Lab assay of single mutants.
Amino acid sequence: GAPPLPPYSAGGREVTMKKGDILTLLNSTNKDWWKVEVNDRQGFVPAAYVKKLDSGTGKELVLALYDYQEK
C-alpha cells in the first residue's frame, strides 16, 4: 500500500494524480510535499508518492507510484 501521508505543510493547493502518471516537477525544496504540474494544473503531491525520472530533456519529471486524491 501507499506510505503514510506526511502532515500537510506545503501551503498551496494539492493536485490529484493516478498511479503511472508522468508529472513535471516544479519544486522539490519541501522534503514532504513536491510541487508538480499535471494537465496544466499546478499543485502539491506527497514526495513519497512519486519517483524522479531521468528525462534527458532538462525538464524534471516524476512518476506517480500511487493514486493521490487532493483533499
Rank of each mutant, 00 (worst) to 15 (best):
P7Y: 04
R41C: 09
A48P: 04
K71P: 11
W33I: 01
P46M: 02
N39D: 15
Y49V: 04
P6E: 02
N27Y: 05
A48T: 10
G11D: 14
P3M: 06
E70P: 15
Q42E: 13
G1P: 14
E60I: 15
V15K: 02
D67G: 06
P7N: 10
G12W: 09
G1Y: 06
K35C: 12
A2P: 15
G11V: 11
T29K: 09
L61E: 08
A48G: 09
V38Q: 14
K52S: 07
F44Y: 14
R41P: 00
P46L: 03
L63Y: 10
N30C: 09
K52T: 08
T29E: 15
L25M: 03
G1D: 14
D67Y: 03
S28V: 05
K59T: 12
M17A: 02
G1S: 11
K19E: 06
T16I: 06
V62G: 13
E60H: 11
L26H: 04
G56T: 14
G12F: 10
K51A: 09
L53W: 06
G12N: 06
L25V: 06
T16L: 05
A47Q: 04
Y66E: 04
Q69Y: 15
K31E: 11
K18C: 09
Q69N: 15
G43K: 02
R41E: 13
V15P: 02
V15Y: 04
E14G: 12
G11Y: 03
K35N: 08
P46G: 01
A2V: 13
W34Q: 01
P3E: 05
W33S: 01
L23Q: 01
P6I: 01
N30V: 03
F44W: 14
E37D: 07
L63I: 15
I22N: 02
V36L: 03
K51N: 06
R13V: 13
A2H: 10
E70H: 11
T57W: 11
T57Y: 12
T16F: 10
K18Y: 13
L23I: 06
L5M: 09
V50G: 01
D32V: 07
P6Y: 02
W34R: 00
I22H: 04
V45W: 00
A64C: 09
L65I: 10
E60T: 14
S9W: 11
E70K: 13
R13K: 14
S28K: 05
L5N: 06
S55K: 09
P6T: 01
R41V: 15
L25T: 01
P7S: 10
V50D: 00
S9A: 14
K31L: 11
V38C: 08
Y8R: 12
N30R: 07
F44D: 02
P6L: 01
L25R: 01
N39L: 10
Y8S: 13
